[in-house]
């Protein structure tokens, strides 16, 4: 088991109770998709797992170790093993694609070397290799903000691959991309999952993508798990429960 979340609570300062005692177990090599409306706690869950925000109560175990309260150097080591992809890519716009990809390695580099830009040839090679995996090696020298949305997200994937992550968290990675690009970006997640055996936890909105890529689905509604199972088992009735009576499924191809 790679990840075990026990009775996880998150209460924000404004009193918003975002997570209400979640229990989740994730096996190695899974492609777990989390669905639910905006504000249901999906992003909060992912950020509590890699401690970008602090959970209020409960525990998170990563590779058999309780990481809920680790600090400093130890926390950075944990973070270095967990890759994260964001909805808005979060690249450094003014840096080149290559430099963005290399920044994924920061957790494993000496501070002074990383600031002076002293990277070994191995790191450059690894960066080019990862750019090749996501198919944009030829754009390595370009500024990150000149790339299209889909390409930027692929750079972000390459960046997190630099960490050699055991676990890859993706927070609505295709929510700001068009349907065709969404699918091609999702294919790279599938590739990472199948070829490197990296466990993926991904927040998604489109059920057609969920059915295509997920090995297991968890649905959240106002901070609680209301569904857990195979993607194929989500029928009309479950859909209405998860997204509300008004909702209708939008097909994307």
């Amino acid at each position: 088991m790679i990840l075990k979340v026990k009775n996880l609570h998150k209460i924000y300062k404004n009193g918003m109770h975002a997570l209400k005692g979640l229990n989740i177990e994730v096996q190695k090599g899974e492609f777990l998709v989390i669905i639910g409306l905006s504000g249901s706690g999906k992003s909060t869950l992912l950020r509590c797992i890699n401690r970008l925000i602090e959970p209020t109560a409960g525990t998170v175990e990563f590779m058999g170790k309780d990481i809920t309260h680790v600090k400093g150097e130890e926390l950075r080591k944990v973070k270095a093993q967990i890759g994260m992809i964001f909805q808005h890519f979060n690249l450094i716009n003014r840096h080149s694609v290559l430099k963005n990809v290399i920044s994924g390695k920061l957790g494993q580099l000496k501070t002074l070397n990383s600031i002076l830009g002293n990277f070994t040839d191995d790191i450059y090679e690894e960066a080019y290799r990862n750019l090749e995996i996501v198919g944009i090696k030829e754009k390595a020298k370009e500024r990150a903000d000149t790339l299209s949305g889909g390409e930027q997200q692929r750079v972000a994937i390459a960046r997190s691959l630099m960490q050699n992550p055991k676990l890859l968290l993706a927070d609505e990675p295709v929510a700001s991309l068009d349907p065709a690009t969404s699918n091609s970006v999702m294919k790279f997640f599938e590739k990472v999952n199948k070829e490197f055996g990296t466990t993926v936890i991904c927040n998604l909105h489109f059920l057609s993508l969920v059915r295509k890529y997920a090995t297991r689905v968890i649905a959240l509604k106002s901070g609680e798990i209301i569904y857990e199972g195979e993607p194929s088992e989500i029928d009309e009735k479950w859909f209405k429960t998860i997204y509300g009576e008004e909702a209708e499924e939008v097909e994307i191809r």
Binding site: L52, K79, A80, G83, M84, N90, L91, G104
Partner: peptide, 12 residues
């Protein structure tokens, strides 16, 4: 966003 992304890589 970028701050979050870079800290998520385990950077100090």
């Amino acid at each position: 966003g970028p701050v979050e992304a870079i800290s998520a890589t385990g950077a100090n």
